[in-house]
């Protein structure tokens, strides 16, 4: 664009000038006469009393002023008409000039276009020339780069080879060294292993002997302990049995004592009369049933007396230990 502007600057300047002129005309026509200002509402008239003479003089004065004014106005109108015709003429001249300008500009544009076309063709040819040259340069450069690249590659290959050589050499050396070290290590390890194995063997042998000894001792101790425990258990068992036997005796005595205190029997029952009473008791000593049987005499009175003796004793004394409790008790009553 800018390029195009630069190339046709005359046309541009012309265009700009034309535009400015047009805008000025537009502004002038837009300016014109302003609208009259409003008079600000109702006009307040102040009345003043005067005398007639004064008024007549005044009126005459005013009438002459009026006539003067009308004359001035007519002169002004004439002036204005003259100005208007002048402006009309000027306008017509201007229009003619503008038309001339338009025609010139069209001519110029035509000319410009031809020039432009010529210039474009010329540029194109130049461009082609340039491209060709550029192509030749690039090919040359590429060939040079190729050669350079090949040189580099050769150089790199050589370096690589050298490096490989060095690496191999280094590796070989390292290998050698490692082998030597490994051998030394192996030998040392072998020695150590042998030493350790020997030590271990000796230790284990010692351990075995120790373990055997300990096992023997433990077994002996255990056996002794077991023996002691057995003895203690047996002793405790025996003690428990003795204790239970004592408790059972106490329990039976307590029951017997209570039942005896409750045995009220008929004096008429002969001595030596016996009666058995089978009793069932609940764990709390509550008598569930008492059944007399096998009475050798005394009849109903004896049976009733012994059954009542047991029932009256309910609840029977509690067992001092659950192991001496019996659900069933067999009493043998004997009249002595």
């Amino acid at each position: 664009m800018w390029h195009a502007l630069r190339e046709n600057y005359w046309a541009v300047i012309l265009a700009v000038v034309l535009h400015i002129v047009l805008v000025a005309v537009l502004i002038v026509s837009l300016v014109g006469t302003p609208p009259p200002l409003p008079d600000g509402g109702v006009k307040v008239i102040k009345a003043v009393s005067v005398d007639e003479g004064q008024v007549k003089a005044e009126m005459k004065k005013l009438r002459s002023a009026e006539q003067r004014k009308q004359q001035q106005e007519a002169e002004r109108q004439q002036r204005l008409q003259a100005e208007a015709s002048k402006a009309e003429q000027a306008r017509k001249r201007e229009e003619q000039r503008l038309a001339e300008l338009r025609r010139k500009r069209t001519e110029e544009q035509k000319q410009l276009k031809i020039q432009q076309q010529e210039r474009a063709a010329q540029a194109k040819a130049e461009q082609a020339q340039q491209a060709k040259l550029k192509q030749q340069q690039a090919a040359e450069q590429k060939r040079l780069a190729e050669i350079q690249k090949k040189n580099q590659q050769e150089k790199e290959r050589l370096a690589k080879l050298q490096a490989q050589q060095q690496e191999l050499e280094r590796k070989h050396k390292a290998e050698l060294k490692r082998a030597q070290e490994a051998e030394a290590k192996r030998k040392a390890a072998e020695l150590k292993r042998k030493q350790e194995a020997e030590a271990k063997r000796k230790l284990e042998a010692k351990k075995r002997i120790e373990a055997a000894r300990r096992a023997r001792e433990e077994a002996e101790a255990k056996a002794a302990l077991q023996k002691q425990m057995d003895a203690e258990a047996a002793q405790m068992q025996a003690q428990r049995q003795r204790q239970l036997a004592t408790l059972k005796q106490q329990y039976m005595s307590a029951i017997a004592s209570r039942v005896e205190n409750n045995w009220l029997r008929d004096p008429g029952i002969p001595k030596g009369t016996t009666c058995q009473v089978d009793v069932q008791q609940a764990p709390g000593g509550f008598v569930i049933s008492a059944q007399a049987s096998n009475c050798t005499g005394g009849g109903v009175a004896m049976e009733r007396s012994v059954e009542t003796a047991v029932m009256k004793s309910s609840p029977l004394p509690r067992a001092p230990d659950p192991d001496v409790f019996d659900r069933e008790i067999r009493f043998t009553f004997t009249v002595e």
Partner: peptide, 29 residues
């Protein structure tokens, strides 16, 4: 029970308690 320990003991624990009553009071009901 004393000789053989618990087993026989527990068996004897379920035997019937046998109690002799010889005292008592002579008197009217």
């Amino acid at each position: 029970a004393l000789l053989c320990g618990g087993l026989l003991w527990s068996a004897s624990a379920y035997a019937v308690l046998e109690i002799q009553i010889t005292q008592g009071i002579e008197g009217g009901v």
